[in-house]
Simulated assay, not measured.
Amino acid sequence: MKILVTGFDPFGGEKINPAIEAVKRLPRSIHGAEIYQLEIPTVFHRSAAVMKAKIEEVKPDVILNVGQAGGRAGITVERVAINQDDARIPDNEGNQPIDEQIQKDGEAAYFSTLPIKAMVEAVKSSGIAASVSNSAGTFVCNHIMYQSLYLAHTCYKGVKAGFIHIPFLPEQVVDKPTMPSMNLGDIVKGLTEAIGAIVDYEGKEDEKIIGGTTH
């Protein structure tokens, strides 16, 4: 199995992005699967173009996108991506789409095709906080998750895709004392466990366990 894992560059005034820092530190092999790392720009549409070029080169079985979710305390595995860009801030090239479809011929939403419940349980079993998330936002994180699933449905049949959000690093919250953070080692460990679950659940049904929220 080949797994392409993407991580964004810094954005929103931050000097570092834990996504690409963690992705770069992943093992090259997890549970026998080959891991391919890719840095992508925090830019609408160009991020998908960079990713698609790598997909053509690697021909992965799985695409896992990783992004920063400042304010979240744990690792959150995303359930769904929506066909909507609605940027609160500009991306790294100054684009700020508002209420725009990502793909005009795409579905209103695509659900992750990864075993999200099993991934969460694997991370929690390693002693790291994790949960299912039911919103990837409307910035470039949701955009790339949607694009990955759109490509998997339209161009690369059989490829599975999904997204994981990770917290700020401690150095990012020095001036944000109310914000939670997670050290890079734990983020890498959590991602490794989540990827291990992807491999272990190949061809199997996801766990049927509670992962929902009331709001």
Rank of each mutant, 00 (worst) to 15 (best):
P177E: 12
M145S: 03
K24F: 07
F168Q: 09
T213V: 09
D175R: 14
R79A: 10
T113E: 01
G32S: 09
P41H: 13
P18H: 07
G158E: 06
H45L: 15
I128F: 10
M179L: 10
V199G: 10
N142G: 03
A130S: 14
S125L: 04
G32F: 04
V50F: 08
F139M: 08
D99T: 00
H153G: 11
M119E: 05
K117Y: 12
V77G: 03
I209K: 15
G185P: 02
K52M: 10
A136H: 06
Q147D: 10
L191C: 04
I98R: 15
H143W: 00
E14V: 09
F139W: 14
T42N: 12
C141T: 00
A81I: 00
L169A: 14
P177V: 09
K176I: 10
L149P: 02
A33W: 06
D9I: 07
L149V: 04
E193S: 14
Q37E: 07
P27R: 03
S29P: 01
M1G: 15
E57K: 15
I98L: 12
A136T: 03
K2P: 06
L26V: 06
T214A: 13
A19Q: 01
A118W: 06
M145P: 05
K160E: 05
K176R: 15
V23M: 08
Q68A: 09
A130D: 04
G158A: 12
L4D: 05
P41N: 03
V66L: 10
V173I: 15
K52W: 09
H215R: 07
S112A: 12
Y146C: 03
I89Q: 05
G74L: 03
E56P: 03
T6H: 04
D85A: 13
I166H: 01
S135P: 02
G12K: 02
G70F: 01
P97G: 06
I128E: 12
A122G: 08
V80T: 05
C141S: 05
I209H: 11
T213P: 01
N142H: 04
L26P: 03
A22G: 11
E121W: 03
T192C: 10
I98P: 06
H31T: 08
E56K: 15
N183D: 14
E171R: 09
L114C: 11
I30C: 08
L191R: 08
A194G: 14
A81R: 00
L169K: 14
V140M: 04
I195M: 02
K157C: 08
R46I: 06
V62M: 04
V43K: 13
Y201K: 15
Y150V: 09
I55A: 11
G32A: 02
V159G: 09
P97W: 02
V123Y: 07
